[in-house]
């Protein structure tokens, strides 16, 4: 009976998964063996996701009564620390493999044809909200400024120090827009004023807010969360 009880305890100990120490991307500058394994798998997952991405598959759209109200604020800082961009002097800077690098004022962006969508915003944490965004279709914009769409990456730099990047195929998806409005009103600072990326084929953190600079490049730009270990492609 004693033997049986000790075996029982042993079985329960077996069942309790022991934490794997050090396997947690603690220090991106000094990856250990587990980190290297995870990086290799993440690179493989990026390739699989790029192959799985169908440029013609649209993200589901929703009815106006399904919109989450009030919207949910999320950033790597609190809502009281949101930077406010002066919209009258705002200029969207362009860089990298783009023919016409003149910067764009908000007025100029608003003069372009606008696209509207009611789509689902899925956070990497697991929650989701539904919202209505409208703005300039990114593929139209890239063609208008003469971007080299054979390049691999689009990078974004934001007013709050956030930065991110996406693959060109996802950038050219018809539902990927440079959003200017939320619920028919200009974006407010906590939700990305004056210009944010809205890309419903990717997770929330791939939708940078308050974009100050957009560049087209073949050099991997990384991102604020991506550099800490979040999967880069993060497609939906």
């Amino acid at each position: 009976m004693i033997k049986r009880r000790s075996l029982l305890l042993r079985a329960m100990a077996l069942g309790a998964a022991t934490p794997l120490g050090g396997c947690d991307y603690e220090d991106p500058a000094h990856p250990d063996l587990a980190d290297k394994f995870l990086h290799a798998m993440a690179a493989w997952n990026d390739r699989v996701q790029a192959a799985l991405f169908d440029p013609h598959t649209l993200a589901p759209t929703f009815r106006p009564d399904q919109i989450t109200n009030p919207p949910r604020f999320n950033a790597f800082y609190g809502i009281d620390q949101v930077p406010v961009v002066d919209e009258t002097t705002y200029k969207l800077e362009l860089g990298g493999q783009i023919q016409n690098k003149s910067s764009w004022s908000l007025q100029q962006l608003r003069a372009l044809p606008q696209e509207s969508q009611i789509t689902r915003f899925v956070c990497v944490e697991g929650w989701r909200v539904i919202g209505q965004w409208s703005g300039v279709r990114l593929s139209d914009f890239l063609r208008r400024v003469g971007a080299d769409t054979t390049c691999k990456y689009l990078s974004f730099k934001c007013a709050d120090g956030y930065y991110s990047s996406i693959d060109m195929a996802s950038a050219l998806h018809p539902q990927t827009i440079l959003a200017l409005d939320f619920l028919g009103q200009p974006l407010t600072p906590p939700f990305g004023a004056p210009v944010r990326l809205r890309i419903p084929t990717k997770l929330g953190f791939k939708n940078p807010k308050s974009i100050m600079q957009l560049a087209v490049t073949n050099i991997y730009p990384g991102g604020y969360w991506e550099d800490q270990g979040y999967n880069w492609f993060s497609g939906s």
């Binding site: 947690d24 995870l38 993440a42």
Partner: peptide, 20 residues
């Protein structure tokens, strides 16, 4: 103490690696 990957980014990396 009984989870793998001590924060969300690492946990997702483990989850999407082990799924294969």
């Amino acid at each position: 103490t009984i989870t793998i990957g001590q924060w969300l980014g690492a946990a997702i990396a483990w989850h999407l690696a082990a799924m294969w």
